[in-house]
Amino acid sequence: MILAIASGKGGTGKTTVAANLAVCLPEPVHLLDCDVEEPNCHIFLNPEIKSTERFTLPFPTVDENRCNGCGECSNICQYNAIVSLKSKPLVFPELCHGCGGCSEVCPEEAITEAKREIGTISSGTWRHITFVQGLLDVGQSLSPPLIRAVKQHCGTNGITIIDCPPGTSCPVIAAVTKSDYVVLVSESSPFGLHDLDLAVDTMRKLDLNFGVVINRVSSLDHRVADYCRNAQIPILLEIPDDRKAAEAYSQGLLLVESVPGFRELFERLYNRILSESSQNRKPTPENKRDFEDIA
């Protein structure tokens, strides 16, 4: 089973849920950190890294002797990464998405593809967990291809947990697609509620089965829980607003091993996910909203 841990808002506790849940799961467990801009799972697990590979994207190089300056490459490129003027085309690798259009279309076969490095994929183990992480190079802008590459390491059996990037745009889509169940982590605050609503829309648009974990639950604000009940979204777990938990997190400690009561919470979460995902109950589609409707 592939289990994605996502959220609309950043900093709600995705990594906390992903890492602590992974520890409570029976073998075999894969934990993939797909928050490639800021991966943090390793801080809590300290895995022994056994292999690292540089991740590359293709980009065009032009054989000057073959190029006849026809400009077909420049016409097909939607990203303005290759431009043909009077001379040999100019290539801007940082704009290239690696679609291969220019090399396919070149009538003189003057374009071949070279590789540019945009990040690193490292993998290792920690206790019974197989750990894989993607890390985007600073200054690089294109994270979805790296996320897709990390996801090639999903386990063939047992449970694979994917720690996703925040938001609702393309990196999140790349991280959550093809998962069997999504855990949306929200926090009990107005910002948390607003961003949860966006994340819920995203999951419905993708037709994914999901439930919600509410983090930092306090007596001040019940709106996230009320929202879930109204929208018939299962609340998988409520994590109390606990200063001890925040302090343990700050030191990079696993809550299930340092704060009393948390192991039970996460074991309960695991059982709840198992029963929810096997029911294959998709939350009611009637308030599925398209972008046009909110416009």
Partner: peptide, 20 residues
Amino acid sequence: VEPTLSGVHDMERVFALTKH
């Protein structure tokens, strides 16, 4: 930044970016 190990890790990457 929040004073957490994750916060420090992410801050270093942001520094690299603003420096860049």
